[in-house]
Design a protein around this nucleic acid. Structure first.
Length: 310
DNA sequence: GCTCGCCGGGCTAGTAACTA
DNA sequence: TAGTTACTAGCCCGGCGAGC
């Protein structure tokens, strides 16, 4: 938000009571008025799906993560402009935990030597999501290797190029030579045309309307980014809505949701059956393959995907 | 009552993390 | 290409006291 006093107080004095003793009421008025003026509140909010989105995110929040012998909690905000929940609490942005500098090391299992942290990561998630929308068959093996062969480059270069094409636009020659990106290009074009004509688009699963009068400086690639992040979030919520009731009876807990990955605090007593149930539901009959890793802490995770090979 | 200068809050822009 | 949160630097400007 533009009114910086809110973020300032939240950052410096988030536990301070009686804020009205310090902040004039008119400052609150300025903040709320500015927000109301900028946003369209005329549309009635009728999408009941969001009731369970809130419940799902709460069911993750309440489990907490064990850090330095005490539980720390996260807080999800699912009303972001992209629809993708942000996640922070107590000065930590959990979606931005550094992977290499040891920031993740203090997070361990609450079950001690009878527990492990287990992470399920979707392989090339956005590429597979959009392939599903386009009804295009991608291989169940590594997507980035598949495109590396078509581009004639290495695995890491292929990953970089696919991201570039997906979010920065598909070049003419790539659209012509690689069928998948040709279809992506066509889809992005149609989506943009619909948005320009109708002044909104709908999210793919919940049919939530995204209105142009609530968006700043929209362009074709940005719109596609919004569409795909909404798709990712809505599909994840559908999957979690299916998964959570099935794993309620176990001791293990889902403790962190990071867009294409799900972190569980696994009690070894729950056995392989628990992990196989999760993998199977996340993958949806192998349509969205996941990689599995585990470790004694969130920094030192080891790939164990092969242990699940049939 | 006017001017000047200090102080500190308001605000913007930017960086660094991470995600796809 | 898009997003979020945490945090910092530095400029701008208004409040206020001192001095005349």
């Amino acid at each position: 938000e533009n009114n910086n006093y809110v973020s300032f107080w939240d950052y410096k004095f988030n536990s301070q009571k009686n804020l009205n003793d310090y902040i004039p009421l008119l400052k609150h008025y300025e903040y709320i008025k500015e927000y109301m003026d900028k946003n369209n509140f005329n549309e009635k909010f009728e999408n009941s799906k969001y009731d369970y989105v809130t419940k799902i995110l709460y069911s993750i929040e309440k489990n907490g993560l064990l850090k330095n012998n005490k539980l720390v909690y996260t807080q999800y905000n699912n009303f972001t402009s992209t629809g993708r929940p942000s996640n922070r609490f107590g000065g930590i942005n959990f979606a931005a935990l550094n992977k290499t500098d040891g920031s993740r090391k203090p997070y361990v299992s609450r079950f001690g030597d009878k527990g492990k942290l287990v992470e399920f990561d979707y392989d090339a998630y956005h590429l597979r999501l959009i392939a599903d929308v386009l009804d295009y068959d991608l291989p169940t093996t590594s997507v980035h290797e598949h495109f590396a062969e078509q581009y004639g480059v290495t695995y890491s270069e292929s990953k970089m190029l696919s991201f570039k094409y997906l979010y920065g636009g598909v070049p003419y020659d790539i659209g012509k030579s690689i069928e998948f990106f040709g279809k992506v290009k066509e889809f992005v074009k149609k989506l943009w045309k619909f948005y320009r004509t109708n002044k909104y688009i709908e999210s793919y699963i919940y049919r939530k309307k995204i209105y142009s009068n609530n968006m700043n400086e929209m362009n074709r690639d940005k719109l596609f980014n919004y569409f795909i992040q909404n798709l990712e979030t809505e599909r994840n919520m559908e999957v979690l809505n299916n998964l959570l009731p099935r794993i309620e009876k176990y001791e293990s807990k889902l403790i962190l949701y990071s867009y294409d990955s799900f972190l569980f605090d696994f009690n070894i007593g729950d056995d392989l059956e628990y992990l196989q149930t999760i993998k199977s539901i996340l993958e949806q009959n192998g349509k969205f393959p996941v990689k599995v890793s585990w470790g004694n802490n969130y920094h030192e995770m080891q790939d164990i995907t092969e242990k699940f090979a049939v």
